[in-house]
Simulated assay, not measured.
Amino acid sequence: MAKTLALRTGFSSLLFWSVISAAFIGPGTVTTCALAGSRFGLELLWALTFSAISTVVLQEAAARITLASGYSLGQIIALSYGVRSRAIGWFLFLAVAFGCAAYQAGNILGAVSGLSLLTNWPVHWLTPAVGLVGIALLWIGSTRWIAQFLGLVVFVMGIAFAYVAFSAAPSPAAFGRALVVPALPGDSLVLVIGLIGTTIVPYNLFLASGIGQGQSLPQMRWGIGLAVLIGGLISMAILVAGTLVTGEFSFGHIAQTLSDRLGGWAGRLFAFGLFAAGFTSCLTAPLAAAVTAQGLLGWSPGSASFRSVWLLVMAVGLTFGWLGIRPVPVIITAQAINGLLLPLVTVFLLRAVNHKQLLAARYRNSVRQNVAMLLVVAVTAFLGLRNLWLAFQ
């Protein structure tokens, strides 16, 4: 009986924390990973390995803060900076909300594109339908119910992408080498930053901190570890599937290429995966922006201010959908923006998780954990600054 209960508890924790997988496996992941595979084969796979490990390190630290102190990451930041906290809180909230809005544009466009490929229904009808269903689910307001729903969809989506990737039959030796050997081929820097930005996702730090209350430390670590592992494997499967695509890069072309190479089922599975990725993320991006406002600005869940945040983020995505903007450039830009925001948010997290007045010694970072977080900051800052320098030149 004890083993049954432990297994049930572990699965429930994994299902709950799968909201993190759902948050970073959106159309941005599908687009960026498939584009990386299409242009560079397996060469950028190492960026996903780095991103997955970094995500576990950062998410665990953000959630540990809440379990130790009862405060979310945003509240810790507010308490840490005293009279300056209001200005810092607004600055961080606007930066994260901007990233969420950029993501949401890609989420709606991606979900509608996948649904259109599956049904051939007109986009101008599908866009408001996806938006209204998303608004209805968010209005219910139960984070745990939404998390469990998203977890189930992520599992189905993962099976779809894994099956397509397995059919691509990459060389095991080449795959294993690409996982751990860094490479930076020409013109790949924006995609590398995008792969990191679409996996670690700055707003997920606030989301993980905000939804982690009520769990034990082992439950939290188990849930985050497995959820991120599943998300990382799905991202890698998408990149492998992208190696089959050459020439023009669009969702329709990817689906057609997979259908031609592997059969009609592959194109339909890709379309379903794209829709599932977009739909799950179009719930998590607005929710993450609202949870961030809750922590940084003190807006309570269910309040008019809290709901106005996720409604505004949802409205941005719907506007892009109505305007008929091409999704791929928007999505790639969103990933790069979030990759540039990441070092900034991580520095605040690093300071918070070492706060001696608010966290007991057993909950503060060890030397090894600080080194790991500093490495994430250094790598992401270097890539981001190098990209800005190249753009300036």
Rank of each mutant, 00 (worst) to 15 (best):
Q219V: 13
T29M: 13
T243R: 14
E248S: 09
L48T: 11
L233H: 11
F155V: 14
F249G: 06
C100Q: 06
S300R: 15
I193M: 13
V30A: 15
T66D: 08
L205M: 13
N387F: 06
L179Y: 03
W46S: 08
Q215F: 15
M220Q: 08
A241G: 15
S366D: 11
I254W: 10
G263P: 11
G317E: 10
L126K: 06
V245I: 14
L58N: 07
G141Q: 03
D187R: 08
P182H: 12
I332S: 09
D187L: 05
A6W: 10
V123L: 08
P301M: 13
L14Q: 10
S281P: 07
A352V: 03
G210V: 03
A129C: 12
V57M: 13
T49F: 12
K3Y: 13
Q104L: 03
W299G: 00
I25E: 05
A271F: 12
G110C: 13
S142I: 00
A277M: 01
W389N: 08
R351K: 12
F11D: 01
A271M: 09
C282R: 01
A183P: 02
T55S: 14
V112R: 08
S209N: 12
A95C: 15
M314S: 14
A237M: 02
F251L: 12
I254E: 01
L244T: 03
F306A: 04
V379H: 02
G298D: 03
G28M: 04
V376E: 01
F320S: 11
T29N: 15
G41C: 05
L79V: 02
F98W: 11
W265S: 14
I196D: 13
H355E: 14
S80I: 00
T29L: 10
C100M: 12
I140K: 10
E60M: 10
L42V: 05
Y203A: 10
P218C: 06
R261W: 05
L35R: 14
S38V: 03
L92S: 01
L189Q: 09
S69K: 13
C33N: 14
G317F: 11
Q294T: 00
P343N: 05
E60R: 11
M220V: 11
A237D: 06
W389P: 01
F161H: 01
F275E: 03
